[in-house]
Write a protein that binds this DNA or RNA. Structure first.
Lengths: 97, 97
DNA sequence: TCTGTAATTTGAAAGTTTTACAACTATCCG
DNA sequence: CGGATAGTTGTAAAACTTTCAAATTACAGA
């Protein structure tokens, strides 16, 4: 079932687009698509050459747009794509990466 | 035929997402979807309550992301959606508005 | 509890985007 | 030509985003 969007969702749409309006964040999403074993923040940062506080910053923006889910296991935090959001707002996007 | 995108297109994707990361610009796109008779800048601005220089500013951002086409006829300039770009980068988006 | 590793927060600096106004250019028509 | 209408450009202020380093919190394991 596909969710019907309306102009009421413009704020949400804008937030999602803003979250994806930086190359670095698109790369982070791509990294998560390609590594579905749920990568840690550290791995994401290392593989994209970002410093850790910057990774935190960008992940938070993706999280606040509901594009990813973050959960802790032990010392690590793992990022997980929220396919529900991508499917509702950007169908086909993840496959295009 | 659908165009195949790659990580080389990240700059372009980011630019498109940035262009759509403001509610005002999403509203402008919606206005153009709903009024396919090619509305003038003035009509867009008036209907969204924006001043004319601000309309110019936002239309330029949409234009530079290849989301719209702009042509002059007489005193007026008309905005026209670039469905090719929407289809390549955001399939389904226009229909969701 | 102490130590080390993982991630977040904070705050300052640098950079970018948005707004608004006034001055400007382009076109039309009498 | 001159006046009217449509849109653009310059510029400055305000608002927002990004980066980076240092301080801080969270957790695991000895």
């Amino acid at each position: 079932m596909t969710i019907k969007l309306t102009s009421k969702d413009d704020e949400k749409r804008a937030k999602i687009f803003k979250a994806l309006s930086e190359v670095k964040r698109i790369e982070m999403i791509r990294y998560l698509v390609r590594h579905p074993e749920h990568k840690t923040c550290g791995e994401v940062g290392e593989s994209l050459g970002m410093d850790k506080s910057n990774v935190s910053y960008h992940l938070k923006i993706l999280y606040e747009a509901d594009l990813i889910h973050i959960y802790r296991r032990g010392q690590n935090k793992y990022g997980q794509l929220r396919e529900d959001t991508f499917n509702a707002f950007l169908p086909g996007f993840l496959d295009s990466l």
